[in-house]
C-alpha cells in the first residue's frame, strides 16, 4: 500500500505584504485628485430676469386673479411683504432688529404663514432698495426659498399622479421686479 505524503502546514509562518505597487498607485492618484478637488464649494441661485419684450408679453397674458406676492427689502424699515389677492392688498412689515440687521428668523416665520395661506403661489417678486447689500438680498432669498423646519411641509397637487404631495419649497421662483425701473 502506497503511503500518502503528509503535508506539513506551519501555522506560525509570517510573511510581509508587498505594499510598493499599492503605494505607487496612490502616489499617482493623489496629484490627480488634488488638481480636481474643490476645497471651496460653490453653488448658484437661479433668477429669471424679465426681458423687455418678455415683460410686455407677460403683462398681456397676466392673470388678474392670481395672488401676487412682493418682498420689498427696505434699508431702513425692514422687509415689507405685499400680498395682492383678489384685488385686495395686504401689507405686512418685518422690521429690522435693534442692532440694525434684518430679522431673518421672523421673516422666515412670516413667509411660512403666507405660504400656508397661499399654497398655490410659488413665485415672489423681489424689490430691494438700491443701498441694500447683495449679502442681505441672498439671505432674504434663502429665507423665502424653502422651509427650514423639516416638519413643516406644504400641500401640492400632482396632476400626473392625481394625488396630493407635500413639499418643503415655499417660493422657489424669485424674480427681481425692479430691474427695469429707472
Amino acid at each position: 500500500m502506497r503511503r500518502t505524503k503528509k503535508i506539513h502546514i506551519n501555522h506560525h509562518y509570517e510573511f510581509e505584504l508587498d505594499l510598493a505597487p499599492l503605494l505607487a498607485v496612490m502616489v499617482k492618484l493623489v496629484p490627480v485628485l488634488l488638481v480636481s478637488s474643490a476645497f471651496v464649494q460653490l453653488a448658484t441661485i437661479e433668477t429669471q430676469l424679465p426681458q423687455v419684450v418678455q415683460q410686455a408679453i407677460e403683462k398681456q397674458d397676466k392673470d388678474e386673479k392670481a395672488t401676487k406676492i412682493t418682498l420689498e427689502v427696505k434699508d431702513k424699515e425692514g422687509v415689507k411683504i405685499v400680498i395682492v389677492k383678489n384685488g385686495k392688498q395686504n401689507i405686512e412689515v418685518v422690521p429690522k432688529k435693534s442692532d440694525g440687521t434684518f430679522d431673518y428668523v421672523n421673516l422666515h416665520l412670516r413667509l411660512r404663514e403666507v405660504k400656508k395661506q397661499n399654497p398655490e403661489v410659488f413665485k415672489v417678486d423681489l424689490s430691494p432698495d438700491g443701498n441694500v447689500s447683495y449679502n442681505d438680498i441672498v439671505h432674504v432669498m434663502d429665507e423665502a426659498r424653502r422651509s427650514r423646519d423639516n416638519n413643516v411641509k406644504f400641500p401640492l397637487f400632482d396632476k400626473t399622479k392625481n394625488q396630493e404631495v407635500q413639499t418643503d419649497y415655499m417660493f422657489p421662483e424669485i424674480t427681481f421686479a425692479n430691474t427695469m425701473e429707472g
Binding site: 471651496v40 464649494q41 460653490l42 453653488a43 448658484t44 441661485i45 437661479e46 433668477t47 429669471q48 430676469l49 424679465p50 426681458q51 423687455v52 418678455q54 441672498v138 427681481f176 430691474t179 427695469m180
Partner: peptide, 18 residues
C-alpha cells in the same frame, strides 16, 4: 442685470458659497 438683459442675457445665475 439691466445691461445684461438689454444685451440678450436674461438668465442670471448668482454664484454663492455653499
Amino acid at each position: 442685470m439691466y445691461t445684461a438683459s438689454m444685451a440678450g442675457f436674461p438668465q442670471l445665475k448668482l454664484v454663492t458659497l455653499v
